[in-house]
Design a protein around this nucleic acid. Sequence first.
DNA 1: GCGACAG
DNA 2: ATCTTGTCGC
Length: 221
Amino acid sequence: MKIYQEHAWPQTVEEAIAIQEKLRDQIITEDKLPETVQYVAGVDMGFEADGTISRAAVAVLSFPGLQVVETAIAYRPTTFPYIPGFLSFREIPAVLDALEKVKIIPDLILCDGQGIAHPRRLGIASHLGLLIDIPTIGAAKSLLIGKYEEVPETKGSWQPLIHKGETIGAVLRTRTGVKPLYISSGHRVSLATAIDYVLRCTTKYRLPETTRIADKLASDR
DNA sequence: GCGACAG
DNA sequence: ATCTTGTCGC
């Protein structure tokens, strides 16, 4: 898998901000994914040794069957701290390592974190999508920024996520009566399509099967 | 200046 | 993210 990384990895928040500001305009929020999506992947992170070691997991599933066809795990020293708004700089290095191990290149990737629902519109899903030029969707378990109206309890219901008068994502109920997920375009996927794929990748749990499988790989010890 | 704050 | 048992509710 080719990686389009033109920028050096930042060492400070100031450098990270400069990178985010430079890349934000390259994000595509229109659908530019394959006619037929055959493989969907989920990526997730885990940490070991007091957080000094990052563990990234990737799970590639068939679509729409959602059968696991390939998985990979990669380890590398953790170099960037967790700072809200800069998650990608902490997690992407290990994620790229894991993705490089996979032979089946997914047509779409669901990330554990925000896409453009970010202060500078470059959450981890968007940043990753840009670096590998693969369609991505941000599916976070909690809110980073934005406001929204209460979401009906039934699965499939959603409300727009607004920030500075702009719709940056959707708060989607992926399971009736359970806390919603925060969905947003990552790269090359529109919000409507993102919502559609998240629901089509979700069976009986709150999390999409993709991230749920990757989640298990990243934490099952 | 005071809160909020993905994983 | 991670540390952790039982418990409430469909």
